[in-house]
Design a protein around this nucleic acid. Structure first.
Lengths: 210, 210
DNA sequence: TTTTGAGTTAAACGTATGTTTCAAACAGTT
DNA sequence: AACTGTTTGAAACATACGTTTAACTCAAAA
């Protein structure tokens, strides 16, 4: 089946280039050249560049979504009436994230970068797309966070939740550059797992501040 | 002096449009139309679009840089041998930031968005520009943070510092959207000062985790 | 064998972009 | 009032982009 190969090659190439340069800065021609595919193939298989961006995103979103949902479903069945701690929640999410992007750091990078762009791009199509696909999962996680932090003012909880999201999106999407700086300044290498290991306690402490 | 007016009008228009749409998505024509200025004026006064972006950035960077430096200089002279707490440091920076963007929320937004893009844009000119202009201030603040958290592992401190930066950059650059969501979900309005008021304790607690 | 239809290709289309040009208008100086 | 260097204006330039078209390939169905 050559059509599946073409679609996959386009997605792979787009993924790598998006992660490396951004979306507006990546042309269809650079994608199709890298994928060794004809220019028209993108519009034939995806319809438009916007649709391609969303398709790249969906490749993570789908599995990630299912994995988190499955973890939470499983937990609710095996241990109902147990209130999850912030650490537990973060662990579920982080585990799904690393499982989905397993073996390919750029997958995590592009996922986070897309997330950041979706929030920043004022009139962007990404924001609506993301909201549409993510909404129910977002609400479910937020409900768990609410249970884990019952004393927190709702407004403050909302913002702290997004502070967490921001930490993750920013640092994980520019992880490569930051790792280069760290190696340059401290002459110590560090891995993706190290960073996540640093991140989770930071987030948990932040949301429990005061 | 009509030339200053033209330059200022271009900077104002560019600032607003960049904050609202992003950089690649904002054309010179939309900027000059909004500024009510001839298209060629941008290239005449700034040389190129890249230079315009940097000029917009410099308009904050300069005053912000000077304000923070002045605060720190003043503190060192009036109260030497006093170790600043994390809260103190954050307060200095936050104060300079709000002072520089006084009366115009979009100034904070674009500043933070630029910061985010500078870190994310792999081969971007912004990153080098920012590093060149910011380096000494960055080091100085980092040195203070180090004194404020003497027990922290250097590697972990580096990452936690950037977790803080990420929280701020992400939430403040998409503050408008987030505020709309908060008003929609909780039917409570909140101000820019509220958000910063929520942010600082979150950051302080995060960097002191464990 | 012929037909069909999805997949691929090269070329072109229309548009939007950043940039350049060069003549006209202007402000300040002599 | 004439000159000079700077700023503006309308137009054009060259290029890059996303998208579309129409001819072609080729394997599987009829």
């Amino acid at each position: 089946m050559t059509q599946v190969d073409t679609v996959t090659r386009i997605l792979d190439a787009a993924e790598a280039l998006f992660a490396e340069r951004g979306f507006a800065e990546t042309s269809l021609r650079s994608i199709t050249t890298r994928a060794d595919v004809n220019l028209a193939a993108v519009n034939y298989h995806f319809g438009s560049k916007k649709a391609l961006i969303q398709a790249v995103f969906s490749r993570f979103l789908g599995p990630f979504y299912k994995l988190v949902e499955a973890s939470l479903d499983n937990h609710e069945k095996t241990q109902p009436d147990t209130v999850l701690s912030i650490e537990d929640i973060l662990h579920f999410v982080a585990h799904a994230m690393t499982a989905v992007s397993k073996g390919d750091r750029s997958k995590l990078t592009i996922f986070m970068r897309l997330l950041g762009l979706a929030y920043n791009q004022g009139q962007g199509h990404l924001r609506k797309f993301l909201q549409r696909e993510y909404r129910s999962l977002f609400r479910r996680v937020m409900a768990l966070v609410t249970k884990a932090t019952p004393d927190l003012d709702p407004m403050e909880r909302f913002w702290r939740f997004h502070f967490m999201l921001g930490s993750a999106a920013f640092t994980l999407s520019s992880m490569e550059h930051l790792m280069a700086i760290v190696e340059d300044d401290l002459s110590i290498k560090c891995t993706e797992e190290d960073v996540v290991g640093y991140l989770l306690p930071f987030l948990a402490a932040g949301i429990r501040a005061k």
